[in-house]
Write a protein that binds this DNA or RNA. Structure first.
Lengths: 187, 187
DNA sequence: TTTTTAATAGACCGATCAGTTTAGGAGGTC
DNA sequence: GACCTCCTAAACTGATCGGTCTATTAAAAA
């Protein structure tokens, strides 16, 4: 019998993409097994708490990635460099608009109520970290916060529109515009 | 036997709210009957094509409403008045950020693939109508289009963030900012 | 009053749902 | 080789899924 052995981090990454594409409710266990090639037994072995545990761990994993790759740099001692890098990280992570934000998608239906703290925490920290970097880079508190909020809103909106219209260039244009907006404000 | 009689438009409106709150996949027929008080028999009487027909008719209904209340005025002879009214209409329709955009939510998972033309059509027309109004109000074609796209992206992003953070004021702030942005560009 | 029409109720159907369970496979340790 | 551990496979379970269908109700039409 030929079989592939997965480790849990592999499982997390694979299942994450299924949730991202199908949403929480649309991602039945059958669809998850079919798309990941992990069996039901394996999935429950790694995630004894079931589907909800999968989603929670995936979100924690995504959050941790953002903390390392984006939030902590923004909270660090080189705000301008971190802000510049944020755009690259954002473009890369969302595959230039071809990949939706799983946490944002979970926010839109009642899935939000299962994971409200995680969802809120992720977006709150993103805005706070960016606002903090803008503040350190020289903007007033009010201006920093408004721009941070505008940037994260623009990113989420661009992901939705890019997907709705089947046009990835929308995401690229929006990132460039938002980046320019922040740079102009910092000059 | 006491029973309530609904007409189809009532059914459309009620079912729409279930889809809006639960998404397409999360809105099982049982949940729809429980939340609308329409029986399964009634639902299939009005929508013999089943769940997919419901969603399609709901989307068509929403689109028709936007055409009447927003897109056609934007396409009409008083662009500035129509743009000003668009903000009020948007705030009102989305209940100041308390109500998600059903069509936007459907765009984020594979529900999009069932209704791609309707989803694309709705956002495309919104952007085109707004860009046309901005053009007629005096902006260059390039500027008009970029601002229209920015506005619709900002609205969708603000809806997502307001819901994710459980903070409706985000939506109000974003509308005010976008409105100001367009007015500044028109001066 | 009787008939027709539109809407409602809810039992029923086969398929699928999330989760449970048992058996087995493969590598590592002793 | 025997035992242990981790992972995999897939049958099974009761509940729920979307859809079908029959009977009923109430209002409108004849």
């Amino acid at each position: 019998m030929v079989r592939t052995v997965f480790e849990k981090p592999d499982a997390i990454a694979l299942v994450a993409e299924v949730f991202r594409e199908l949403g929480y409710e649309g991602a039945s266990m059958s669809k998850i097994t079919a798309r990941t090639k992990l069996s039901k037994g394996s999935l429950y072995h790694f995630f004894p708490g079931g589907k909800e545990q999968m989603a929670a761990e995936i979100m924690a994993h995504i959050d941790a990635w953002f903390v390392t790759e984006m939030f902590e740099p923004l909270e660090g001692e080189k705000p301008r460099a971190a802000i510049a890098r944020m755009w690259e990280t954002t473009d890369s992570y969302f595959r230039s608009g071809r990949r939706v934000c799983l946490i944002g998608a979970f926010a839109l239906d009642e899935t939000r109520d299962r994971f409200s703290a995680a969802i809120r925490g992720y977006f709150h920290r993103w805005i706070e970290a960016l606002a903090g970097a803008l503040l350190k880079a020289g903007l007033s508190g009010t201006k920093a916060r408004a721009l941070a909020e505008e940037a994260v809103i623009g990113i989420q909106g661009a992901l939705t529109l890019a997907r709705a219209l089947g046009d990835e260039t929308i995401f690229g244009r929006s990132l460039a515009r938002l980046k320019q907006r922040l740079e102009t404000a910092l000059d």
